[in-house]
Design a protein around this nucleic acid. Structure first.
Lengths: 231, 231
DNA sequence: AATTATGTTTAGGCAGCCCTAAATAACGCC
DNA sequence: GGCGTTATTTAGGGCTGCCTAAACATAATT
């Protein structure tokens, strides 16, 4: 029984935990450099913070080997992630934000909004399960829907897929994807894949209202999809 | 033309400016001790911060005499106050917060919420003019409805008044006032004033649905009213 | 196995914002 | 008009969270 209830973490600490959580999900332990890159902070500063986080019992740190969240650190990261994603939902659905602008606003608010505020927002929205970019919202008790989806860049010609999630860091990219009709829930058929990292030709939209689009592989790699039965 | 647009002030700086704005409205310049008391910070720390605020051009400081906001400081204070009060409105009217709990939540959010978010909230509410406690919301261009109201403690027996605003710092007090039916907009008749700082007997509520209540002078001094024509 | 490149940590600094203790100025009183 | 009280400021520190430069560990190369 490790209770140790949220001793109120600072904004920066929450940001570090979120970054580590995310990096750890891909490869193994998160490395100093990766964290520094993601948070736009010098590696030396990250090293210093790793020390503090380890002292707080939020991570375990093997020098020169990387860091891992402890159970407590994971819980804290998921709490912040839940706040962030519910805020994103609320901003788009209730306050009319476009999906390319919610990320930055939520990034600020997530450190200031109380648990209660966020839960009231979630209730007002009917306890949403995914944020506007399709990312799953962690539950109150710290569980998350953990899938490993393929990206549109991995889909082969002739395949029919449904868009599940798009990466939300870059606003311009999100605006462009919205223009193309590529958003969570949309169905997409891969018409053709040009060789040598060439463009991927798609049919976007439901039966009857399909439009032809072409995207580069870099963009396609930002779009997570699941198979939908061959065409 | 002193443009110098909001160079993004820190949370603590915004808190100091709000406190100074408030104190300056009563007596003349705000003193170090008053500010320290209100922000629950040591006077020495306030002295230090006064130096910084003066360097930033937000206040003028006459050593040992007190401080005054500059025009720029006043604008910054009013911007924060506007954010705070619109947030309070939104939390009560849309998210169902009770009026004794909005203050603290808004206090946190006001430093993180963007101008845009707050304006969207204001629009959703129909551009409210007062917060849930009756305090006027500064306009976007930095003007405020500036009244000097009397308090219920100054009203004489037989007078009929309308409640305009109640002080919002203490949650328990707000809960009690709500219980008594004393909230902005309520009409109140002063039935009797006991001497020697004794209780003030009131008839609270509109014609037909009046109830008798009694309050001490300390509480009455927290309720701002305007005359409503003799009874 | 030695060298080089890369990634990480330590050392030393700085700014913001807070503290306590001590010095100093202003005020009120006799 | 001096004296004590009270208010204010200065001196000296601490913690968070960032920085650069330099030292060090690990991995990659030849």
């Amino acid at each position: 029984m490790t209770a140790t209830h949220s001793p109120v973490l600072t904004g920066p600490v929450e940001d570090y935990l979120k970054a580590i959580y995310d990096l750890e999900r891909g490869a193994g332990p998160a490395t100093t450099n990766e964290i520094a890159l993601r948070l736009a902070i010098s590696p030396a500063s990250v090293s210093g913070m790793m020390r503090r986080l380890a002292d707080l019992g939020l991570i375990t740190h093997e020098p020169y080997r990387g860091v891992r969240l402890t159970e407590e650190g994971r819980r804290a990261a998921l709490r912040t992630l839940r706040r962030h994603r519910i805020l994103e939902c609320y901003l788009t659905e209730v306050l009319g934000y476009s999906w390319d602008r919610v990320h930055d606003e939520a990034e600020q608010l997530e450190h200031a909004a109380s648990e209660e505020l966020v839960e009231r927002m979630a209730a007002a929205l009917g306890e949403p399960a995914h944020d506007p970019h399709g990312a799953p919202i962690p539950s109150r008790d710290g569980t998350v829907e953990e899938w490993t989806l393929r990206t549109l860049a991995d889909a082969s010609a002739g395949e029919r897929v449904r868009v599940r999630q798009v990466m939300d860091k870059d606003a311009a990219r999100l605006r462009y994807l919205a223009e193309l009709g590529i958003r969570p829930g949309a169905s997409v058929s891969v018409v053709d894949r040009a060789p040598f990292d060439g463009p991927i030709t798609l049919l976007v939209g439901g039966a009857g209202a399909e439009v032809t689009r072409a995207v580069g592989p870099a963009l396609a790699a930002q779009v997570f999809v699941e198979p939908l039965g061959a065409e």
